[in-house]
Nucleic acid binder design. Structure first.
Length: 821
DNA sequence: CGGATCGAC
DNA sequence: CTATGTCGATCCG
C-alpha cells in the first residue's frame, strides 16, 4: 500500500505517538502541525488500557535492547575482527552472485480504498476521507493525512484530529472488483505476476521487455477513454498535462513521454504510443490502470523485488521510479535510505538497530561485523542482503497454505458460557473455510486477548487431522477450558478470541497418505502392522510414561479439577459445563485404551497391506517389512532419476516407517486427548515419514497439478479471496510523503567497513587475495582488504576510526517521556 | 511442539 | 463508548 509509509523518524525515538503516524507536516494550508496532532492523540489515548499495554510492550523492547547492548559490551576487538573477515568473505560471495538481469516491477495503488470511495462518490472529493470504522481505519486520503489521520488509527481518534473527517465503511467487494480490473491489465505483462493483497503486485517484466522489442508500434498504442466527444484532440491535451481525468499522473517527474522520445511525435489523436523501455512499460501500465479504473498507481522498477518495492515508495503518489540494473545505482539508492523503508524492517528492528547507531542502509553495511555477532544468522544475513541491495530476482510461487484462522474482536465477554459459545462459532466458521479448500490440520491454536490487550495463544496438536466444527471445537474447548481454569475463580475477561488450524498435510503427503491410509483402514489386520516388532512389544511404547501418570488419569484429573472449580462458580457455569464438557471422554478413553492393549497383546496379525503397492505382505520381522516398503517406494516413486534427499524430514535416505513411529508418535498418543486417540494411531503411524524426498522433486514427478493458484480463476474466487482473506489493512505506521522529498545530504562519506584501532604489529592474511599483509594498524589492513575485496564495492574509502558517531543514548529512548510530551 | 513476537497488507 | 484480521517467519525454551 502506498499510504502506509513506515515511520522512520530519525529525530526522535519511536514510541506510541510516532506509531500513530505523526510526522512533520509542512502542508500549512489546512491540517494540523505535528505538535497539535501529538497532543490530541495523547489526550484521547492517555490512561486507556490500550495505552498501558503499549507502554508495557515498549518496555519489553527496551529490555531487549538493553540485553543486546550488554552483549555488545562484551565483544572484544579480536572477535569483531574475526567476524569482519568472515562476513566480508561472505560479502564477496554475495557480490559475485549479484544478479541484475531481471526487471521487477512493483505496482502500488495510491490510497486504494479511499481512492475507490472517492471515485464512486464525488461528494467526497476535496474532503478528508478515511475508510474503516470508528474503531479502526484502513486507510485515509491525502487530505485527511494532513490532519494526522492515518491507516491503523481508530476512527474516534481520527475524528478528534479532524472533526470534518468522513469515515466510509469498508466495502471489500468493491475493492475486489477494482483489483480484478487492475490485475487483468497486469497479467498481460506478466502472467505469473504476484498480487500482494488488493492494491499491490509484483511483476517480472523481463520477458515482456524482450518480446516488446519485436512488437509493431500499434501494439504499444493506447487510446484515451473519451466521454467527451468535443475533446477531439486528447493527446495534445494529454501531452500538455491537461488531461482532465488524469490530473496528477503526468504532472509528476515521470512524464509519459520523454522529451527525447521519438514516439512523442507519432502519437495521434486520442491515442498514445509507449516506448519499449522498462519505464515506458510501467508508464503504459499506469496509464491503462488509470484509464480503466480512474485510479492512480505508483510503481518501482528495479533488478529485484526488495528494491522494486522500496522504489515504488519513492515517488508516490502517482509516480514511478527506477533503479537501473547497475551495482553502482543500487548502492547509491541505498546509501541514505533509512532502514525502516526496507520491507521486513519494522518498528522493533528499527529501534534496536538505532540503538546501535544504525539508521541508514549504509550504516547497516558498516556495522555488518557487529551485527553478525549480535543477531541470529538469519537476521544478520538478511541485514547484509539489504545493505548490499540483494533480493529475490524472480517471483516465487506461493507455497501451500500453512494455516487458516479466524478471530473476532468484541466488547468484553466474561462468562464461560458465552466464551464457549463464541469459540464454537469460530470453529464453525473456520471449519467451513477449511472445507472449502479441503484442508485438514493437526494443530489447533486458541488465541485470546484480554481486556488489557494482553494476547495469549494456546495450541494443541492432535494425531489425526481435524477439519469439522466438532473436531476443531473438541480441541479448542479444552484449550479454552484450561485457560478459564487457570485464572479461576476470576473470570476470563476477553475482548478477542481466535481459532487457528495449522499443520496441514502437504500436497505430497496428502497423495501418498490417502493411498496408504485407505489401505491401512481397509480392515483390522493393518493394526497388526504395529505389532510386528520383534523383541519388544509395543506396550513398552504405549506405556512409556505410565509410571508417573497411569494412562487416563492425567486427563481424568484435569477434567475433574476443572469441573470442580466450575461447580464453585455461578449457576450459569454448570450449564456451560454440561454443554461443553464431554463427560464420556474419560470413559471413552478407558475403552480405547483397552482396545489398544488388546491389540498389542494379541498376536494374530502378521499380514499387512503395503501402503505403496497395496499387496498383502506377510512378515515376521521389522527389517524385512521396512525393506519391502523402501523398495516399493523407491520403485514407484523415484525411478531412476529421482534422488532421495538427504536432509529432508527423515534422518535417513530410506523411508523407514516403524522406527519413527516408535520414537515419536507414541509420545503423541500419550499427550493426546482420549477422545481423539481412538482410531488415530493407525494413520499416525505413517505420518511424518511419508516422504523423505525433497518436496521440490516430488512435485516435479508426482504432482499432476501445480501449486495453489495465485490468481483466482474466476470472479467468485476473487470475491471470496478478496473479501474474506486478503483484506488489506494498512501498515500501522506511516510517514508523510513529504519526507521523501526532503533529501538531506550527508556530509560525511560512508566507508565500506568499520575500522579498529590496533596497537599490535601483526601479519595478517588477506581473506581475499590470500597474501600476507604486514600491518601496523588494522586501519591499513582493513583498507587493503576493502580494496582487494571488490574493486570498488564502495566507491571511496574514507577512514573511520570508530563506530559511527551516532550512538545510542538509552536515556533518550524512554517511552513514557514521549507519550507525556 | 508451543508460545511469543515481528512484520506485511 | 471506541485500538483490526490473517498469514508467514523466526526465535527461544
Amino acid at each position: 500500500m502506498d499510504d502506509m509509509e513506515k515511520v522512520g523518524n530519525s529525530s526522535c525515538n519511536d514510541g506510541f505517538l510516532l506509531r500513530m503516524g505523526l510526522n512533520d507536516n509542512k502542508a500549512g494550508m489546512q491540517g494540523l502541525d505535528k505538535e497539535k496532532i501529538n497532543k490530541i492523540i495523547m489526550e484521547t489515548t492517555k490512561g486507556s488500557r490500550f495505552y498501558e499495554n503499549e507502554l508495557k510492550k515498549d518496555q519489553q523492547v527496551n529490555q531487549r535492547i538493553e540485553k543486546m547492548m550488554q552483549l555488545k559490551e562484551k565483544i572484544t576487538k579480536q572477535q569483531l575482527l574475526k567476524a569482519q573477515l568472515q562476513v566480508d568473505k561472505l560479502v564477496i560471495e554475495l557480490e559475485q552472485s549479484r544478479n541484475l538481469s531481471s526487471t521487477i516491477v512493483h505496482i502500488d495503488m495510491d490510497a486504494f480504498y479511499a481512492a475507490v470511495e472517492m471515485r464512486d462518490c464525488p461528494e467526497l472529493k476535496e474532503k478528508p476521507v478515511a475508510v474503516g470504522s470508528m474503531s479502526m481505519l484502513s486507510t485515509s486520503n491525502y487530505h485527511a493525512r494532513r490532519f494526522g489521520v492515518r491507516a491503523a488509527m481508530p476512527g474516534f481518534i481520527a475524528k478528534k484530529l479532524c472533526p470534518h473527517l468522513t469515515i466510509v465503511p469498508l466495502n471489500f467487494e468493491k475493492y475486489g472488483k477494482v483489483s480484478k480490473e487492475v490485475r487483468e491489465i497486469l497479467t498481460e505483462y506478466d502472467p505469473n505476476f504476484m498480487p500482494m493483497g488488493l492494491d499491490e503486485a509484483y511483476l517480472n517484466i523481463t520477458e515482456h521487455l524482450e518480446e516488446r522489442l519485436r512488437w509493431p508500434e500499434d501494439k504499444r498504442r493506447f487510446f484515451f477513454k473519451t466521454e467527451n466527444k468535443d475533446d477531439t484532440n486528447m493527446s495534445a491535451k494529454f501531452n500538455e498535462g491537461g488531461y482532465s481525468a488524469s490530473p496528477v499522473l503526468f504532472e509528476d517527474n515521470t512524464p509519459l513521454m520523454d522529451d527525447h522520445s521519438e514516439q512523442r511525435d507519432r502519437s495521434v489523436e486520442n491515442s498514445v504510443i509507449f516506448g519499449t523501455s522498462a519505464e515506458e512499460v510501467v508508464k503504459e501500465i499506469r496509464f491503462r490502470i488509470e484509464q480503466k479504473t480512474q485510479l492512480t498507481a505508483s510503481a518501482g522498477i528495479a533488478p529485484n523485488i526488495m528494491l522494486a518495492k522500496m522504489c515504488s515508495d519513492r515517488n508516490k503518489p502517482n509516480g514511478q521510479c527506477r533503479i537501473p540494473p547497475e551495482r553502482r545505482a543500487v548502492l547509491d539508492f541505498l546509501k541514505d535510505l533509512p532502514i525502516r523503508k526496507v520491507p521486513g524492517i519494522g518498528k522493533v528492528t528499527e529501534k534496536m538497530l538505532k540503538a546501535l547507531g544504525i539508521v541508514t542502509c549504509s550504516e547497516l553495511y558498516q556495522q555488518r561485523a557487529l551485527l553478525s555477532l549480535l543477531f541470529s544468522e538469519a537476521s544478520w544475513r538478511n541485514f547484509l542482503d539489504i545493505s548490499l541491495g540483494l533480493g529475490s530476482t524472480h517471483l516465487e510461487k506461493d507455497g501451500e497454505r500453512k494455516s487458516m484462522s479466524t478471530e473476532r474482536t468484541f466488547s468484553e465477554i466474561n462468562t464461560a458460557e458465552d466464551q464457549y459459545n463464541l469459540c464454537q462459532e469460530l470453529c464453525r466458521d473456520l471449519a467451513q473455510e477449511l472445507q472449502k479448500e479441503g484442508l485438514k490440520g493437526k494443530t489447533v491454536t486458541l488465541k485470546l486477548k484480554n481486556v488489557n490487550f494482553e494476547v495469549k495463544t494456546r495450541a494443541s496438536t492432535v494425531l489425526s487431522s481435524v477439519s469439522t466444527e466438532e473436531e476443531i471445537f473438541a480441541v479448542a474447548k479444552d484449550l479454552l477450558g484450561t485457560e478459564i481454569d487457570s485464572i479461576a475463580p476470576h473470570p476470563l475477561r476477553i475482548r478477542l478470541m481466535g481459532v487457528r488450524v495449522s499443520g496441514f498435510l502437504s500436497e505430497e503427503e496428502k497423495k501418498y497418505r490417502q493411498k496408504s491410509i485407505t489401505s491401512f483402514l481397509k480392515s483390522g489386520k493393518e493394526i497388526g502392522f504395529l505389532r510386528l516388532q520383534p523383541g519388544k512389544s509395543n506396550q513398552d511404547y504405549f506405556t512409556k510414561n505410565s509410571e508417573t501418570s497411569p494412562r487416563g488419569s492425567f486427563f481424568d484429573k484435569k477434567r475433574a479439577a476443572r469441573q470442580l472449580s466450575r461447580e464453585n462458580l455461578s449457576p450459569n457455569e454448570t450449564v456451560g459445563k454440561q454443554l461443553f464438557h464431554d463427560r464420556k471422554s474419560s470413559a471413552n478413553f478407558v475403552e480405547e485404551t483397552k482396545k489398544v492393549t488388546e491389540l498389542q497383546n494379541s498376536n494374530m496379525c502378521k499380514i499387512f497391506t503395503c501402503p505403496v503397492c497395496f499387496e498383502e505382505q506377510s512378515s515376521n520381522n521389522l527389517e524385512e517389512l521396512n525393506r519391502h516398503i523402501d523398495e516399493c517406494l523407491s520403485g514407484t516413486l523415484f525411478k531412476d532419476t529421482m534422488e532421495i534427499s538427504k536432509n529432508d524430514h527423515s534422518r535417513e535416505n530410506t523411508l523407514n516407517f516403524l522406527p519413527q513411529f516408535k520414537n515419536e508418535n507414541v509420545d503423541e498418543c500419550q499427550k493426546n486427548k482420549p477422545d481423539q486417540l481412538a482410531g488415530t494411531y493407525q494413520s499416525a503411524s505413517i505420518s511424518d515419514n511419508s516422504t523423505s524426498i525433497s518436496t521440490e522433486k516430488f512435485n516435479q514427478v508426482i504432482s499432476d497439478k501445480p501449486h495453489r493458484e495465485r490468481q483466482p480463476s474466476n470472479l467468485s474466487d476473487i470475491a471470496r479471496n478478496v473479501c474474506m482473506k486478503q483484506c488489506l489493512f494498512p501498515k500501522r505506521i506511516s510517514q508523510d510523503n513529504e519526507d521523501h522529498f526532503e533529501k538531506t545530504e550527508h556530509a560525511e562519506e560512508t566507508s565500506s567497513s568499520c575500522f579498529f584501532e590496533a596497537k599490535e604489529d601483526s601479519v595478517l592474511v588477506c581473506p581475499v587475495c590470500n597474501s600476507e599483509q604486514k600491518t601496523t594498524s588494522l586501519v591499513s589492513f582493513n583498507r587493503h582488504v576493502d580494496v582487494c575485496l571488490n574493486k570498488g564495492l564502495i566507491k571511496e574509502l574514507t577512514e573511520k576510526k570508530d563506530f559511527p558517531s551516532r550512538t545510542c543514548n538509552m536515556e533518550n529512548s524512554n517511552t513514557v517521556g514521549e507519550y507525556a510530551h
